[in-house]
């Protein structure tokens, strides 16, 4: 089986505080993996380690085949990342944003033109090539941001609350883009506060107080917790968290 993430006893301590407490899990190629948890449960810290931005205190993990402690640069080159808070440069045009990201990710020069063309065509954005990103509608920005995050064809893309504040139609169109990408073999690692979106994942994990409190398919979790919705599952798990104030 082709595993894109293998985490074993991954742990991060800040002084006496254990932000991420011995988490172990695996994510397979082409999977949509939902990474849920209350604010302060340790999601961001775990995600930063998996992206090669922060070293674990103990434990280990391999992402896209590379060790997150000893091969951080290779990890960064082989993943994509997108968040709702920041994804594109507003003061650059659509084509400039694509060129910038492709350049950062070392896409060969000859390929950049071809991929830019393909991308614009697939999104139906050819006429917006020279439009500044700040004047694009939000839904278009989302699509462009996701597309540039995977311009270097990474094995896995990390999506950090990609749909926060987005209108309901655009939110769903965004998920359809995730499906298309995973159909092409890209793995998606997603955080979200929308519990209906948890249902769109193949598997989800729920973090509570730095640990993974539950991990399975949404249907199985609903069954195990005797719950009608993932929202209900989440409440059952997270309401007893001791790190509530966070």
């Amino acid at each position: 089986m082709d595993k894109v993430i293998v985490a074993e006893q991954l742990t991060k301590q800040f002084g006496h505080f254990t932000a991420v407490d011995h988490i172990s899990f695996e994510v397979e190629r082409g999977e949509i993996f939902g990474f849920l948890g209350a604010n302060g449960a340790g999601k961001t810290t775990a995600m930063r380690m998996l992206c090669g931005l922060s070293l674990p205190t103990s434990g280990k993990a391999r992402v896209a085949g590379f060790d997150i402690a000893t091969q951080t640069e290779l990890v960064k080159q082989n993943i994509g990342y997108m968040s709702q808070k920041f994804a594109l440069y507003d003061e650059l045009t659509v084509a400039e944003n694509i060129r910038l990201y492709a350049g950062i990710y070392d896409v060969p020069k000859n390929d950049i033109q071809i991929r830019t063309h393909e991308l614009l065509q697939r999104l139906g954005f050819e006429s917006e090539r020279n439009t500044f990103v700040h004047s694009l509608p939000l839904g278009w920005k989302q699509k462009l941001a996701f597309s540039v995050a995977i311009i270097h064809q990474p094995r896995i893309v990390f999506l950090d609350e990609p749909t926060g504040g987005v209108d309901p139609v655009t939110r769903r169109q965004f998920w359809e883009m995730i499906y298309e990408a995973t159909d092409r073999g890209i793995t998606a690692f997603v955080t979200t506060h929308y519990m209906d979106e948890a249902e769109y994942c193949n598997r989800v994990s729920v973090m509570v107080d730095g640990k993974i409190a539950a991990m399975d398919s949404p249907a199985q979790l609903r069954k195990d917790f005797n719950a009608k919705t993932m929202d209900d599952v989440f409440h059952q798990l997270a309401r007893n968290a001791s790190r509530k104030a966070e």
Partner: peptide
């Protein structure tokens, strides 16, 4: 916005 479902409640 950006707050988890339990804290929102």
């Amino acid at each position: 916005t950006g707050v988890d479902p339990v804290s929102r409640k």
